[in-house]
Design a binder for these strands. Structure first.
Lengths: 187, 187
DNA sequence: GTCTATACAACGATAGAC
DNA sequence: GTCTATCGTTGTATAGAC
């Protein structure tokens, strides 16, 4: 098999970038085409429909994002510190979460295949946070609720920051959550 | 002034419904037209551009949503109970927040006027929650962080629920947050 | 596998009669 | 104020040569 998938790779990379910047629904195949520099025919050869392109690009983005998040959660440190490290990770709050934003994208929600990929990201992320909290001594049932809350605070932080145009809103939200988790642990 | 604004009201109501169901960017003026039952010309008479229609419909939705949220926060009850009541309000998690979802809508974020209206909703909501937490005995600086966290948990809960297709994700998130707030208050 | 050229529908918006 | 008819553009997708 010769090196003929170059155009495909460039198409996926261009799509990931445009989707992150403008969303899936607001990005046309034509724009991806222009950004990638390949020809019209190549796009439709590798990705017969927009659905196919979206699935490939979103899949790649989800994989990247999950790997990054899991790194913070599996560092060499006490469990509670790892949970706090996840919360406090540096984030481009005004840009929004590359994955979370897809949830508000009609083009994604209307496409079952793509939506499932996005859903998997969050179930796996919540599971990972719950394991860390359990390790930190939180009883199982409560660890799952706290994990949902922690991941939700981050996603909601993005919403607040973008809506108000103020990145501090995200910082305030994670600070509030971190303080509550520490208060509970330190009693 | 005779009763000639009827078409306008119907247009706004139809737009609010369609925007809530499908988002702003994914809803065309034509669809609003069809749903409202008025003619093409009437739409463009009352709302020369899509921007004007969006501003009117989003403004009305924000007003409604803010009034509803503030009701839970100003009920006749101890301060902490009111904060918990806000968190625990019944919500259609899979539908998403009528206001928060706009944050992920490119058509809204590209329109400064509309985005400002959405931003105001959140600053006022966070302020109201912060006041209640202060009243509940949380020191001022921390009350603002906790308020951001509380509002973010709700918004993030919507994201989790929609992504996973599971309304329980929202319930788990607010349960986790409520438990942390109560633990802190009960020490 | 890649290209250029093109099809056809829906988009936001306007024209002009009533 | 409301209507029908229509404009020019962009959307997703296809045709067919190379």
């Amino acid at each position: 098999m010769t090196r003929t998938t170059d155009a495909r790779d460039r198409l996926v990379a261009a799509a990931q970038e445009l989707y992150a910047a403008r969303g899936v629904g607001a990005t046309s195949p034509r724009q991806v085409l222009a950004a990638s520099g390949v020809g019209q025919g190549s796009l439709y050869h590798h990705f017969p429909t927009k659905h196919d392109l979206t699935l490939a690009a979103v899949g790649a983005t989800v994989e990247d994002a999950l790997a990054e998040s899991l790194r913070a959660l599996s560092a060499e440190a006490p469990a509670l510190d790892r949970a706090l490290a996840y919360l406090g990770r540096p984030r481009d709050a005004l840009a929004g979460c590359k994955v979370g934003r897809l949830t508000g994208d009609q083009a994604v929600m209307d496409d079952d295949g793509v939506r499932t990929v996005v859903g998997t990201y969050f179930t796996r992320l919540v599971d990972a946070v719950a394991r860390v909290l359990t390790e930190a001594g939180v009883p199982d049932a409560e660890a799952r609720d706290r994990a949902h809350a922690a991941v939700a605070v981050v996603q909601g932080g993005y919403v607040l920051a973008r809506a108000t145009g103020d990145a501090d809103a995200m910082r305030a939200a994670v600070r509030g959550m971190a303080a509550l988790l520490q208060a509970e642990a330190g009693r």
